Simulated assay, not measured.
Amino acid sequence: MTSGRYQGSPAPEPVKSVSQTNRRSQLIMGALPFVMMAIVAAVDLSTGPGVGYISLLALGPAFASLVGGVRRTLLIGLIALALSVALSLYNDLLGRRPGNMSLITISGVTAAGVLATRERQRRERELADVRSIAAVAQNVLLRPVPRRAGHLRAAVSYTSAKAEARIGGDLYEVVTGPSGVRVIVGDVQGKGLEAVETAALVLGAFREAAHDEPELLGVSERLEKALNRRLSGEEFVTAVLAEAHPGGTLTLLNYGHPAPLILRANGKVEFAEPKEPAPPLGMAMLAVEGPRPYTVRFEPGDQILLYTDGVVEARDRKGHFYPLEERVSLLKDDDPEAALEALRRDLVAHVDGPLHDDAAMLLLRSRDA
């Protein structure tokens, strides 16, 4: 599944620095009208009145409508008109047909540029409103995870495949309830609003069931029921559910999701693979048995990384997948958030461009009770 990174509080961050790219683009577009008018003036002065380049000064107000406001567009239009008068005087064209046509052309393009600027600004305001609503929806859908949950420390990261994305089909949650700390990381099949709706459904059902159900299987059954009431049969959700026990173990349920990676306190790396594969959530029509809970050791100093397939399927320019197992040494920082951020930055550097899929990661660390 939309720039971004969540640590403590959701704040999407795209795979590249959008602010820097936009700033550079704004500077280029802002200078373009003046550059074009300077070029036209220089060419006209060097070629003389015979060719008739003065009307091309209208490129100034035309490009001015792409950035900035109405006043700026008008100002550049007036500068173009002043240059046109000056060049007409220099070429002895003022009051003659070529000089008059250049003034008319520049005036018309300036008027059109002003109208275009007003329309662009209206659309920008509408887009800003939509982004604001999306940001609020993001905070509701993917709430901040607690930094400390029971005997665990937690950090989360979400890198969007699209710079402007705010919400999508990757999901995560950490709930501390009567039965302990319960966690979910999942990935909705598909994109767009339908994926967002499904993610919201799963998270809502999980948040409620994680508090109510005494067993982890009961939580997963509630998720299945909620999904099967909505999904059409071709949609599904891969997910890993986990329950942490203070005694030094984790109970896991894996619904067709990438196996979590465990980094032991002694540096050993292993994947928490289920004994038998199971279909994703929402596939009740297959009439097959769901996953069986399995338990792994999770002692003080151990870490477990739950992630979506956007992490391990991220490719570099040569088509090589991201070598997650080889990069877990980046999780050495004492601060889980800083450690996860180091891994996220390495993932972005590996791809060296936009991700093809959103990448969510949830890091849990076991600490002394």
Rank of each mutant, 00 (worst) to 15 (best):
V219W: 01
G150A: 13
T238N: 02
P246V: 01
V181W: 02
V196C: 05
V237Q: 00
A134H: 09
R131V: 07
A116K: 07
R131M: 13
R123P: 07
I133T: 10
L253G: 04
D170H: 08
E221Y: 04
N139P: 09
G177N: 10
R125V: 03
A199G: 12
E215M: 00
A239L: 01
R131N: 14
I133P: 04
T117R: 03
E208Q: 15
A116V: 07
E234C: 06
E243C: 01
G169R: 03
V175M: 13
E124P: 01
V145T: 09
G192Y: 14
V219H: 03
A135S: 14
D170M: 11
S179C: 10
R118H: 08
S160R: 13
A195V: 08
A149N: 12
N139H: 14
K162Y: 15
T198M: 06
L141D: 13
A200Q: 03
V156G: 08
A135D: 14
A209S: 07
L217C: 12
D170K: 09
K225C: 07
P146H: 08
E197V: 11
L252D: 05
T238H: 02
L216M: 06
G190C: 09
A155H: 05
G190S: 08
L201N: 05
A149I: 08
V174D: 12
A128I: 05
V185G: 10
L223F: 01
R182K: 15
H151G: 14
R207T: 03
Q138S: 15
N228R: 04
E243I: 00
P146S: 11
I184E: 09
L115Y: 00
A242Q: 00
T159A: 13
L115C: 02
L203R: 08
A137V: 12
G169T: 04
P214D: 05
T198W: 03
E234W: 06
N139D: 15
E173C: 15
L115P: 00
P146Y: 07
E197D: 12
A128L: 12
A199P: 07
A154S: 15
L241Q: 03
V181D: 03
L223K: 01
N139A: 14
I167P: 14
S157D: 13
A128F: 07
L193M: 14
R122Y: 13
A137H: 09
P178I: 07
P144Y: 14
N139Q: 15
E194D: 14
L227N: 00
